[in-house]
Amino acid sequence: MRLLLVPGTSPDRWARVWRERLPDDPLHVVHAGAGDAVDAVLRGDVDAAVLRLPPAGVDAPPPGLPTTLPSTSDGWAVVPLWTEQTVAVVRKDHVLTVVVEVDVSDLAGETLLVPGDDVLGWQPPGVDLLEVPDVPTAVDLVANDAGVLLVPHSLARLHDRKGTAVRVVPDAPGSPVVLVWRTDREHPHAQELVGIVRGRTAGSSRGSGAQAPAPAPRREPRTPRPAPRRTPPRKRR
């Protein structure tokens, strides 16, 4: 099976579990930008993809996502996996680093760096926008005190730089991560993959490679004990 992953998603644990459950069918993992994942599935380059959708409340896909998104009404299987928390990437000595979590209102007045491969498509009110080519460039600019960047947490870890810090923005919309494939070309082990990425055990997975639970031991019927013989009372003479 061929599985595409967008930046920020890691296949290590999934690949290990796949090898344990399906040793005769290797899982081939490829990587591509979030904007290219849908086309790769449509072309048949991969059997399935783990990709991002726009956050709730965002009407149009941001520039880092495909313009046409997978939908069950258009012949896609769309399996929600998790929603990733949004974080603010700031310079290490930025005033926002004095708190553990940043409120959206705390970002007012900041310069927000908007990368050309942005996957959020959301800006807090009261910020000044500065467009930059991509996320790696934005992180470099953050380290040079040029502004603040909002990204899913895994992208902040992926592009970690010396001199930057990360703070969770709990009231910002998160980035939904889903597993998708075309229903007319469903791989035989698609449901097994769902179980693996969702962390289900082999016994609870619906995939064809799952092991069926052992049947409960059959209890043999108990042989009824014979009723005791009652001796009729002797007649008195």
Score class of each variant (00 low, 15 high):
M1E: 04
L3G: 05
P7V: 02
R13A: 13
W14R: 08
A15G: 05
W18Q: 00
L22Q: 00
D24Q: 14
D25F: 00
D25P: 02
P26S: 00
V41Q: 05
D45V: 09
D47K: 03
A48W: 09
A49R: 05
W82A: 15
T83V: 12
E84R: 05
Q85P: 02
T86S: 06
V87L: 09
V87D: 05
D93V: 03
H94L: 08
V100D: 15
E101S: 11
V102T: 10
D103M: 12
S105W: 04
L107Q: 06
A108F: 00
V114C: 08
D118M: 00
G121Q: 10
G121P: 00
G121C: 02
V127D: 07
E131V: 05
V132G: 13
V132W: 02
T137D: 12
A138M: 02
V142H: 06
N144H: 13
N144P: 01
D145Y: 00
A146C: 10
V148T: 15
V151R: 07
A156C: 03
A165S: 07
P170N: 02
D171T: 12
A172C: 03
G174C: 01
S175H: 08
V177D: 10
V180H: 07
V180Q: 04
W181D: 01
W181F: 08
E186F: 13
H187K: 07
E192Q: 10
E192P: 01
E192S: 01
L193G: 03
V194S: 01
G195L: 06
R200S: 13
S205R: 04
A212W: 12
P213F: 11
P213R: 07
P215I: 02
A216P: 04
E220L: 15
E220A: 15
P221A: 02
R222L: 13
R225Y: 12
P232C: 08
R234V: 05
R237C: 07
